[in-house]
Amino acid sequence: MDYNRIFSHIYCENEAFNYTLANQIIEKMRGAKLIGIDHYKDVFNRTGQNFHVQKNSQKLILAVKKDSFFYEGSGLCHGIDGYRPLYASQVLNCIYDCEYCYLQGTYPSSNIVIFVNTHDFLNAVNDELAKGPVHLAISYDSDLFALENLHGLSKHWIDFSRGKDNLLIEIRTKNKNYEAISSLLPADSFLLSWTILPDTIIQKYENGTSSLEARLKSVKMAIADGWQVRLCIDPVIYTDEWKQIYKNFLQAVFEYIDKDKLHDVTLGAFRMPSDYFKRSRKSRLDSEILSYPYEVVNGICKYPSKLEHELINYIKDMAGITLNTI
């Protein structure tokens, strides 16, 4: 099928044209066709979109966020003791196409929205810091690093975090693009997290992401430069020969990365709110992961308890370090 290339079209809210970031992005994507819109939801929330088909030619939507600059963190995510978990979604959706991704059940579209009013996000978080320490995840609904060369948002957030003792910002990625920020001085209040899974899982289920080797190289460079780095073995996916696959994976990871230099390592088996899961399954009728007969417990789709415990305990034993589990 002859699809348009990624970001062949940019939909820009008329108000967003007043923001520097929007104009910088438009300038960088000079070949793209520009379409003015009143509100991002006019495009993003259209009925009848196919999330999966759109992945073949994702469009870019530039918008101005008016309210709800952050949300309370989900109980399904790993937190940091003593910090109130929040997440901010300055970018909606991801350029990758992971088979297990909850975004396909979250949004009606796989087009990418970038909110260009960065300062409004920063100001809102500033106000929240007055209430106590905050652990702010800024890339749960996207992979900010993957598009860093386009929007440069990670740099803004890193600079914002400097000198703020009661803030810990976490950016999570499956990308090797550490170089995009390697020229910056490490920030104490900024945590770089890499999601890692065995390469067989990456190749089979994480379309478009960087290889394990490339991610680990970035991890090593970031540690060497003095950044706080978290590794996330998440979501653990059940597959044929899983014991051997995860054993080899853990050996390779901790032979290459000095575990003592990591902030922490988190671990979690595949899980998803059941309403997101239903929509994800419906949109991807060829997915092995999404057709697995999961259990639903308290509105969460997960592996049957016996298997989940086996997966988690085996990996904990094999890793030989304390893993932060949900």
Binding site: D2, N4, D38
Partner: peptide, 10 residues
């Protein structure tokens, strides 16, 4: 009213 057709095809 404004409508936005999908622009997937090259």
């Amino acid at each position: 009213k404004v409508f936005y057709p999908e622009m997937l095809l090259k």
